[in-house]
Nucleic acid binder design. Sequence first.
DNA 1: CTGAAAGCGCTTACAG
DNA 2: CTGAAAGCGCTTACAG
Lengths: 314, 314
Amino acid sequence: MTASRALSQPKLVSDATRSKVEQAVAELGYVPNRAARALASSQSHVIVVLVPSLSNAVFTAVLEGIHDAVAPGQYQLLIGNTYYSQLEEEKLLRTYLQSNPDGILFSSQVRSPAVAKMLAASKVPAVAMMDLSDDPAVLSVGFSQYEAGMAMTRHLIAKGYTRIGFIGAQLDERTLRRADGYRAAMAAAGLADPGLELMVPERSTIALGAGLMAQLMALRPDCDAVFCCNDDLAHGAVFHCQRQGIRIPQDIAVCGFNDLPASAWMMPSLTTVDTPRYQIGFEAAGLLLQVIKGEEPAERRIDLGFTLRDRESA
Amino acid sequence: MTASRALSQPKLVSDATRSKVEQAVAELGYVPNRAARALASSQSHVIVVLVPSLSNAVFTAVLEGIHDAVAPGQYQLLIGNTYYSQLEEEKLLRTYLQSNPDGILFSSQVRSPAVAKMLAASKVPAVAMMDLSDDPAVLSVGFSQYEAGMAMTRHLIAKGYTRIGFIGAQLDERTLRRADGYRAAMAAAGLADPGLELMVPERSTIALGAGLMAQLMALRPDCDAVFCCNDDLAHGAVFHCQRQGIRIPQDIAVCGFNDLPASAWMMPSLTTVDTPRYQIGFEAAGLLLQVIKGEEPAERRIDLGFTLRDRESA
DNA sequence: CTGAAAGCGCTTACAG
DNA sequence: CTGAAAGCGCTTACAG
């Protein structure tokens, strides 16, 4: 009917009928049925977002950025939590593809064969967030995790630390890239020493950071600085030292990654890498929206950089 | 066709045809269309979740609980961020109602007239999370914010503190209920003193906690304890004192609310109220699922309680 | 500017 | 156990 038009393309309808329709809508409390609209128009106005965690403040900031970028466009966000599992990512993608999304936002660069296949078959545009992709076919928004890991390590080396440990958990692709950067910087300075690395697959928590710090210091009492792969671990490391009366940075330096809110306030304040996570979400959603509209993006790879925060702990 | 049945109710189809269908599905890479299914069956299998914040760890834990409770049932979650705004809540509800959800999970008890009207008109079952509802018509899962605020205040009074300040931010309904509990306990002990309350509408952050702590101590140097309405503010308060060389709890006691991960680890460790936020999400989703299935729930109001964590800071 | 018609891809009773 | 038919509530060209 004309009513449908009055609602979706008000310009094409005369003022008189439009107001009649609007009145009827108000009286009846009419609510359009999204499923019917999606089916008829074959446009879902759904954007799928896959994040590895909802408890990690990094990804909630990314979500807020996406939310803010997308709100004006009336897209509906379908948020999936992969729990850092590729298998879970596959399952979620399979489920969400049933909603015929207009686009997909991934938090990872690495795509399992199954995910790659589904993505190709569905022809839904996708953008990878967090790291920059080497593959020109993949749209990406983020910063180089590798460069950031290297920059922090160089910073510690420049300050005169020579036996710099690395504490890593979760071991997701971003952590591994940061570790690669750490190794490259250590090797370049002739300081490489695999015995200074402590990597475990458990989820990053403050408790784990405290435990790993204790472990590393027992294993390598000569260690003079520790690069924690994220701020949660670093906070745990700092709290552990405080409780043990170990002075930071005099006895040992500690630094983290991400610059969570507590890092600037704790004592000592934490040297860390500030990452543009909100901005990543915002820009990635913007890029995806562009592609959905059929526009050719100016850049297929948006580097948002990172900022080293040199504070008291190192 | 029979194919539809083979997929949705495999039991009603012979083994032979079922395997033929399955093979065809695999070959063609068939993906069912959710919009069509929703339209034909008038069942969306969508559950709407409205939370006031995605950056607050409390609500991400609630989301994880919901996620885990709902996963087996194949429901799709539509997560909306109200940013603590009733107007935003209304807009989100209006939008999400178009998806014809099977149920709705609110993070608030208070419902604006518009929300109440839409809810009644849509007849979609809803469950309120976080606090317990006084209205028997409303299903709720949580704990008494009022009782919890009172319990913490009584705890401080029992320890001998007499000039106990209250720092509150955001001023959402939960904070206000905790403040009510604080006031009731203070009044009951004959310690009521409105000048000890510092309430601001800004978002709770560590930075704000530090600032409010400084403000309160300047305003009321006689204050001997401070009850922060949440752990973020309390962390800021503790960090402020550390930087100023103010000893906790000797010079002033500090306590918080929620028991975030850092609270047990920081120095001094934070006295706070541990709240069952994951469990609230889990149970609320379970209750909603029951109602969706047409079952009569055993309880319309599930009290999950809270636990006082008595630690070093008070 | 407005209306009649067909169809989006499923599901649901209803016969066989 | 399987198939033919109608219909879910919209949108989209297509005539008027």
